[in-house]
Amino acid sequence: MTNRGNRPHDATRMKLGPLVVPDWLLVVIVCLVPVGYMVTRSFGRANPITLDIELTGTLDPYRTLLSGIYRPVLVRSLGLAAITVTMCLLIGTPAALALSRLSGRSRTLALVAVMLPSFVSFTVRVFAWQGVLATGGPVESLTGAQLLYRPPAVLLGMITAYVPLFILPAYVALARVPRSLIEAGADLGARHWRQLGTIVLPLAMPGVVTGAVVVGVLSLGEFIVPTVLGGGKVLLLGNILAERGAGRDQPLGGAITVFMLLSFAAGGVVVAIFRRRAARHA
């Protein structure tokens, strides 16, 4: 027999159990119901006149999504999301590492600087970039480069929008790496790069991967940036979802939703693998 049931930890769980039920119900209603609604619609046919959905169990929306028309969009969306994640990793990881090494007021100031853009509406920031990249704008005036309405502008907009969202979880993970382990590594002769590669990054990997997944998820569904900075010429999955899936062709929107869910699930599996490896390493 064990006295486990009398431990304070379990007692707390017993008390909280009924209290969290309404929260979980709310989560289910708010999160799962809309997704379930869209997934259900992915097996239907839309009446183009009345927009009524006839649920027939058809797979036509999936065939349409994978057809020649939308295949370039799928490839472009996945490619752009991958590039955005890679760039956020390359830019954000050193920034998060530097942030984690700061202390006191300088750390606070640096954190505020990273977070400051997020205090402004996302749409406003994207339109601000439109002004910066426009003909006669600062970028063209200084460099002569006309980036607006071209793919580099979309990439720039996405990276600048999402890099703070990568830095934060990466920073939290990096800041939690015990200094004693780094010092122990140093005592055993590990130089800076070796400390970084064998101690710091492996332990912080769950945070880094979480940041990457967040960026990947948001990039894959992005539609404001390509519309505003891509001039409507760089069509992404998010644009189809907004233009067709939310209107005349909800079944196609449902199929895109499922595609995105599967992509996110794949990201979740990657995070889980990294977490398990990190736990073993620790």
Binding site: P48, G68, I69, Y70, P72, V73, G232, K233, L235, N239, I240, R244, R248, D249
Partner: peptide
């Protein structure tokens, strides 16, 4: 009609 427009924008 929609398919042609999407093909144009997706190209």
């Amino acid at each position: 009609f929609d398919a042609v427009w999407d093909a144009f924008k997706a190209a």
